[in-house]
């Protein structure tokens, strides 16, 4: 794949958090929140990043934006290595990458007016002209379906869905290329979710945005995203085009995740896989394949060796010993099994 059509390229990204304890706050362990992630985000696509809480999906989003320091790895944005940039070089790039938060209630300063919240980024990035700022804020609010008069109001006067629109306007006001949406609809009521999802889809098409859409809900991801990456315990386990992934999920975890989602159709006939137990702690991830402790298909090999993320064909990447590219024999499995 040529690198030019990738807006973001993540290679070997690791984010480890030290766990400190005791009076002297010595490091007693390391939470491997993100532990070796390779991922490309193509220009103009919506990439879904799904996984359960604690899998590291949010951390990936923040590390890309350099909001939290990465432990290892590189992130190239538009060809530039973000982690080696000086703060002064990073600042102009910051306006091209924005973040929409999950919680529309705590992510807006309750004492600022909406106009100031949305316009703050413009001020930070040197738009000093009041008139211009006002005009751009108005436009951003218009894009998300709010009006000029809303600028003078405070966040508490808005409903959850409207607040999330304000959060989106705040991201849009700087004309970014890339937006990380961190669970933007999970805190909203169902009927409001659809409004925000439709809005995101429209904006992405109109403004030719690239979105990283972080979510835990497979049905939302299927609706919105062009491609989907599935994470488990700090690792990407599967990446594919949306249709390919939902028609033909390969990784046992992806399959379990899909079957676990309650479908709002009582007549849907589905194979139900119920995983046993809880996800292991990222403080002490299991040996080999991290999913082997809960995997219904696990073999001996899975506990010993970590599977690589390989292309099974049709740009369908999967990290599982039991899935091999089309036409190839699962020799490693045969070897251990025999």
């Amino acid at each position: 794949m040529s690198t030019t059509d990738n807006l973001v390229e993540i290679r070997g990204l690791k984010v480890h958090f030290p766990v400190r304890a005791g009076i002297l706050k010595r490091t007693v362990g390391v939470v491997k929140a993100v532990d070796g992630v390779d991922l490309d985000i193509r220009r103009g696509e919506i990439l879904g990043l799904v996984g359960e809480s604690g899998c590291g999906k949010t951390t990936v989003g923040r590390a890309i934006l350099r909001l939290i320091p990465a432990t290892a790895g590189t992130v190239r944005f538009d060809g530039k290595d973000l982690f080696s940039l000086k703060p002064s070089e990073l600042k102009p790039l910051r306006r091209e990458m924005q973040l929409v938060f999950q919680d529309p209630y705590s992510s807006l300063d309750p004492r600022s007016k909406v106009g100031d919240i949305v316009g703050e980024g413009l001020r930070v990035h040197g738009v000093t002209d009041r008139q211009e700022r006002h005009e751009r804020v108005r436009k951003a609010l218009e894009m998300v379906g709010l009006q000029e008069e809303h600028m003078r109001r405070f966040p508490h006067e808005f409903s959850g869905g409207q607040r999330q629109r304000i959060g989106i306007a705040r991201a849009l006001v700087l004309n970014p290329k890339f937006i990380v949406c961190d669970e933007p609809v999970s805190a909203l009521d169902v009927s409001i979710q659809s409004q925000v999802l439709n809005l995101l889809k429209d904006l992405q098409q109109e403004l030719d945005l690239t979105l990283l859409f972080i979510a835990h809900d497979m049905s939302v991801v299927e609706h919105l995203c062009d491609r989907v990456a599935v994470m488990y315990l700090g690792k990407i386990v599967e990446v594919a085009e949306r249709d390919e992934l939902f028609r033909n999920p390969q990784h046992p975890y992806t399959r379990a995740l899909m079957s676990a989602i309650p479908v709002a159709d009582p007549r849907a006939k589905r194979e139900r896989i119920i995983l046993q137990g809880d996800p292991p702690s990222p403080l002490r991830p299991p040996s080999g394949c991290r999913f082997h402790t809960r995997c219904p298909e696990a073999t001996e090999l899975c506990a010993q060796r970590e599977p690589a993320l390989i292309d099974l064909g049709r740009a369908h990447l999967c990290a599982c010993h039991l899935r091999q590219p089309e036409g190839q024999v699962a020799e490693s499995v045969a070897r251990v099994g025999g």
Binding site: S194, N198, S219, L224, V263
Partner: peptide, 13 residues
């Protein structure tokens, strides 16, 4: 208004 897995709609109600 809710997305249902396996039943894709262009737009949600």
């Amino acid at each position: 208004s809710i997305p249902v897995m396996g039943q894709r709609k262009e737009r949600l109600e």
